[in-house]
């Protein structure tokens, strides 16, 4: 019987080693995901503030998401899923790429975090609804944005909070994120197609079509002095909350 165990996601030893290596690459703060690592504290700052506002939690609390469920769509190797778990959430991470999911599982296990990871398209998962739904830097990679947004909205609990981040479609993002950053290797080549980027207005319409109201977007800007930081400048990348209308 050839590899019957693969079907129920039990991973062979050599594959585990491979995914462990992949996880190490994803989680290397100086590796190919360096930009994502640097972005992480910045977007988490926004997320923490949104959580505290939405659920009126104590800003100093260690586990403001305690007792809440969270769905991290496009979770990659778990860069966001793990902090959400530390903040107390019962986290489910979904990613289309099975090797990302295997890498994420390997890393979470090492970190001693209990996170449910699932590979595949969101539409194919029968997983109910969540208090918090995040999709960071995902929209720009999705072909049918309307269908994807409907799926995201369907996973959001009635009083839930959704948080999205995505690059803006501006001349600046074309030059810096697709041109310069890929040319010098800050972002892996071929990561982004500028034509797939959404402006905040387009995102607002997209959300509204799925029955969601968009909050005030905040920019993620870059300066040589401050590095990546939250800003009123939306021209490169922005992050925003949404809730049911």
């Amino acid at each position: 019987m050839p590899d019957a165990t693969v079907a129920n996601l039990t991973i062979r030893e050599d594959e585990a080693a491979h995914f462990g290596k992949l996880a190490a690459e994803w989680w290397d703060p100086k590796g190919s995901s360096a930009m994502l690592h640097r972005l992480n504290p910045v977007r988490l700052k926004f997320i923490r503030r949104a959580i505290d506002m939405h659920w009126a939690s104590d800003v100093e609390a260690r586990k403001p998401l305690s007792g809440k469920s969270a769905l991290d769509v496009g979770c990659g190797a778990g860069l966001l899923s793990e902090p959400l778990a530390r903040l107390g959430a019962d986290v489910t991470g979904v990613d289309a790429a099975p090797e990302n999911i295997a890498a994420a599982s390997a890393h979470a296990e090492g970190a001693g975090l209990d996170i449910r990871y699932m590979a595949g398209e969101l539409a194919a998962q029968d997983i109910g609804t969540f208090d918090l739904v995040t999709a960071m830097e995902v929209l720009e990679h999705v072909a049918d944005k309307r269908a994807f947004m409907r799926e995201l909205a369907a996973r959001l609990a009635p009083d839930g909070l959704m948080i999205l981040s995505t690059p803006n479609r501006t001349p600046q993002s074309r030059v810096l994120m697709v041109g310069a950053a890929e040319a010098v290797g800050l972002i892996p080549r071929g990561t982004h197609d500028w034509n797939d980027f959404l402006t905040p207005e387009e995102l607002r319409d997209l959300l509204s079509g799925a029955g969601l109201t968009m909050g005030e977007p905040e920019g993620i800007a870059f300066s040589p002095v401050k590095g990546l930081h939250l800003s009123g400048d939306l021209s490169l990348n922005y992050i925003v909350t949404a809730r049911r209308a």
Binding site: H37, P41, L44, K45, E82, P83, L84, R86
Partner: peptide, 16 residues
């Protein structure tokens, strides 16, 4: 500040 954001105390961004 890192703990408020759910980051591990050994997180490279914090040490940076």
């Amino acid at each position: 500040e890192g703990a408020r954001l759910g980051l591990d105390p050994g997180d490279a961004q914090l040490l940076d």
